[in-house]
Design a protein around this nucleic acid. Sequence first.
DNA 1: CTACATACATTCCTCGCTGTATGTTTGCTA
DNA 2: TAGCAAACATACAGCGAGGAATGTATGTAG
Lengths: 218, 218
Amino acid sequence: MVTRTQEERSTAMRRRLLDATVECLVEYGYAGTTTPRVAERAGVTRGAQVHHFPTKADLVTAAVRHLATERVEFAAGETDRLKASADALGAGLDLLWGIHRGRLFVATVELWMAARSDPELRDQLKEVEPLVTGALAEFVRGQFPAQAARPAFRHWLYTAMDVIRGILVSEVAMTDDRLDQRWRRARGHLLLLAAGLGLEGGSVSGHDQKLTDTTDKN
Amino acid sequence: MVTRTQEERSTAMRRRLLDATVECLVEYGYAGTTTPRVAERAGVTRGAQVHHFPTKADLVTAAVRHLATERVEFAAGETDRLKASADALGAGLDLLWGIHRGRLFVATVELWMAARSDPELRDQLKEVEPLVTGALAEFVRGQFPAQAARPAFRHWLYTAMDVIRGILVSEVAMTDDRLDQRWRRARGHLLLLAAGLGLEGGSVSGHDQKLTDTTDKN
DNA sequence: CTACATACATTCCTCGCTGTATGTTTGCTA
DNA sequence: TAGCAAACATACAGCGAGGAATGTATGTAG
């Protein structure tokens, strides 16, 4: 029997509960994220859960922070894997795309929607969301020292994030294959826009060609 | 006392209930859209509601169709108010923006998210959503006969919708003033993109100027 | 006018979620 | 090692949702 210090037990348990909360957000949505389910998911009794987070609001509040840091950490990890390529801007876009795909963003949107009818939650998100989104943009921006100084570049990144989020949210319940089609179109548009903004990247003419040739399947 | 035929009573009642359902979606979210609340909102008893929609799934299913037709009708109405202007493409974008702002789109996203964990609802949306989105694009496209034939134009419209939806969903719980800032940036980008795609519109150079001058407030 | 169907209302039952109260174990500290 | 506090477990109470059963009024067809 391993003996752990109380603080170890506590933080480990809190982490398990918060991870379970995010998992429940992804799997069951915000409304389906009930305290019994979270406890079950974490593999603990309800008593343990209620001990660390006496009220559901406490749990959600902590989960908001937890999710925020997880998003930033994940983005940081993905950024490290970004290699130099001929199509630098395109790689940057794909990075941003990769950051938004997956469970963490789904859980985030789940919170965004829930915040509409929950002032307490809304205040939490209003506080952390700009930090996270800003951090995401910073990570990509850091990969482009030559452009980083230009405001237009950052604005371009924000537009790119808006496009990505628009695609993901409207297909959130749909199949993955259509997602990639949509992203290819949008990606081409964003690269073309970058050229229009005078942001240097790889050759864009190729993408321009692709654009008009795209089949009618969209 | 006015005597109404049974069919009149029935359709009127169904309409009231479906309108109330959409209102509840906007105000309380999907999870908060309970059958008692819908009935209360519609000003009828629970008995009346359950008579027309025996199960909650029946109500939601009908509401999906109702919302779809409402969205199309609203878009059609807005399109009629579109006047010829010097900045034709910009006006088209603003039209698309106006269509997406407001209650109907909020209710739609509420359904999108709920569909993630509700296969039945997902199937419903998979059926109607492409029709609605397609109709929206058609309305705008109809205003530009010169460009309507070009696939690039339609693709551009879809990207525009993605941008709009990305903005709206990430600010769904936030204040309206930030929305307009974000839309102005994105709008400029979309017009610049249109120029890059060879889509004729108003003068774009002015917007290009605005872009790089935008303050750092985003 | 009678009989039936549809529209609407009331009541009750079951279930799941939240929160609380109370019991038990485990680690810390004097 | 005795005692206390934190960590965890169990049991229960209140509440609101969804749905079924049953009752009443209002059209409608023969």
